[in-house]
Amino acid sequence: MSTSFAPRDDDFHFAEMGDRWWMTETSWFSFCNPEHKLGGWLYTMARPNIGTVAGGAWVWDDTAHLPWEILYNANYTALRLPRDQDLSDIRLPTGVAIRAVERTRVYDLGFEDEPHCRMALRFEGLMEPRPLRKAGSPFGGASHFDQFGRVTGEVRLGDRVVPIDCLAMRDRSWGPRPEHRPKKSAYVTGIASPRDAFLAVTRHEGEREVIAYGFLIRDGEAADLVSGTREVERDPATGWVTRISITGEDALGRRLEAEGTRLSGLIINRHSFIDSNGLIAWSINGHEGHGEDQDMWPIHDWAAMRRAARGRTA
Rank of each mutant, 00 (worst) to 15 (best):
R20F: 13
W21L: 09
W22C: 02
M23I: 07
M23H: 06
T24F: 03
E25N: 02
T26R: 09
S27A: 14
W28M: 13
F29K: 03
S30Y: 11
S30T: 15
F31C: 02
C32S: 14
C32H: 13
N33E: 12
N33Y: 05
E35A: 15
E35P: 00
E35I: 13
H36N: 13
K37D: 06
K37Q: 11
L38T: 15
L38V: 12
L38I: 14
G40S: 03
Y43H: 11
A46V: 12
R47P: 01
P48W: 14
N49R: 12
G55F: 15
G55T: 11
G56N: 06
G56M: 04
W58S: 14
W60C: 07
W60A: 05
D62S: 10
D62C: 04
T63G: 08
P67A: 08
I70K: 00
Y76A: 11
T77S: 09
R80N: 09
R80M: 11
L81I: 10
P82M: 07
D84C: 04
S88N: 14
S88I: 14
D89R: 07
D89T: 03
D89Y: 05
L92G: 02
P93R: 02
T94R: 03
T94N: 04
V96E: 04
V96M: 01
V96G: 04
V96I: 09
A97K: 03
A100T: 10
V101T: 13
R105M: 10
R105L: 14
V106Q: 06
Y107C: 02
D108C: 04
D108N: 02
D113G: 00
D113S: 00
P115G: 01
C117G: 00
R118A: 07
R118W: 02
M119N: 03
A120N: 13
A120Q: 15
G125R: 05
L126N: 08
M127I: 12
M127K: 02
P129Q: 01
P129T: 05
P129G: 04
R130Q: 09
L132D: 05
F139G: 04
G140P: 06
G140C: 07
F145H: 10
